[in-house]
Computed example of a mutant assay.
Amino acid sequence: MYVPALALFVIFILYPFLQGIKISFTNWDGYNQDYSWVQWDNYRRMFTDSQMLNVIYNTFIYGIGSTFLQNLVGLLYALLLNQSIRVRGLTRTIIYLPVIISPLIMGYIWYFIFQYYGGALNDIILLFRDEPINLLADPKVNVWLITLVNTYQYLGIAMIIYLAGLQVIPKDYYEAAQLDGASRFSQFMHVTWPLLAPSVTINVVLNLIGGLKLFDVITSLTGGGPGYASASLSTLMYQLYFARQDAGYAASLGNLMFVIISVISITSLYFLRRKEVTH
């Protein structure tokens, strides 16, 4: 029964992955049928590239920053919307709605808010000062704006997973804690948080993988610029392949990104699963 799924995995994932490893040892331009083997040159070039450190730093900001914010805000929303409050269902729907929008479209929506000329935010700023602010061109700001937009779009998923975790916690535990005189904070720290460990594991691993390979929002907001100020490994690979026709080097970056995501996600999964066993 699993042969069709295995065949699709081999054809569309395993084979392209192995081809990517092969291409990373060549000077292929992505189009021409002729190419030469360059051995480890692409990897040496990668580790001596002056822009690479900044690109990797940005990639970690997108991954770790989005993970922290999505889990923090998603958990707060889940705790609030797990209570018996009015319009609870409508509020949950509104928070989750951005998830169903294409990330590329979401980036363009926020671009029209942040853009230098005619942006909604700058229209408001011009009411109080003479010059608009070019936030998307500021290397100290644009990376964090992208992280916030990505957080805004996907925190609904974290909220839903935490809500599911909260709703399977037996109410008897809270009643027993109340009888012992535990405060709301103590109940959260000693009942809610330990029993939410499986939900934390799922959210952290999914958010890390999604953030570390972030592409669409970066492309629509800044295109990775100015220069490489907001580029991630994903956007740099895209530029190398399609703009520079440097597919061999792009493939080596893809392999680096695969290693980074695999190591971080597997390590996080192992550590968080151990915390689940502890509790």
Rank of each mutant, 00 (worst) to 15 (best):
L76N: 01
N134Q: 12
A158K: 15
N150P: 08
T91Y: 08
R184C: 15
I13L: 11
L126K: 14
I21P: 15
F60D: 04
S234A: 14
V87D: 11
P139G: 12
L76I: 13
L166D: 04
S66N: 15
Q153C: 01
S186E: 11
M106L: 05
A229T: 13
S262M: 14
Q39M: 13
P98A: 09
L179F: 00
I160T: 04
Q19F: 10
R44P: 02
L127Q: 13
A197E: 04
R129K: 00
G74S: 10
I157S: 04
S232I: 07
Q115A: 13
Q83M: 07
S265D: 09
M257D: 03
L79R: 12
W193E: 03
L81Q: 15
N203R: 08
Q167G: 09
M106N: 15
G107H: 05
Q187D: 06
G119M: 11
I157V: 04
G65L: 05
L14F: 08
M257K: 04
A7Y: 08
N255L: 01
G211N: 05
Y57A: 13
V143Q: 12
W144A: 05
Y173E: 02
F9I: 10
I218D: 14
S199K: 06
I64Q: 09
F242R: 02
S102D: 00
P198V: 02
R184V: 09
R184A: 09
N58P: 07
G210C: 12
G107W: 05
D172F: 15
I113L: 07
G224L: 04
L81S: 04
A231R: 05
F185D: 14
D49C: 13
V217N: 04
N255P: 00
T201P: 06
S232W: 14
Y238G: 12
W40K: 09
S232C: 14
L208M: 10
I264N: 00
L97I: 11
V263W: 10
G63C: 04
L135R: 07
V87P: 14
I133P: 06
G227K: 12
L104R: 04
F188K: 08
Y77Q: 03
Q178P: 05
D49T: 11
F242K: 07
F215T: 10
I264V: 10
Y96G: 06
A7K: 15
Y57R: 15
Y35C: 12
I61H: 12
N54A: 04
S102Y: 01
Y43D: 09
S220P: 10
L127K: 13
W110K: 06
L121A: 10
L253V: 11
I64S: 12
L233D: 07
L69P: 15
I161N: 10
Y162E: 07
F215K: 12
A243K: 15
D123V: 01
D130P: 03
I261Y: 02
K22N: 04
R184D: 08
L179N: 02
L155T: 03
S199H: 09
I169Y: 01
I202M: 13
L206Q: 02
G119S: 13
A78S: 11
F258Q: 02
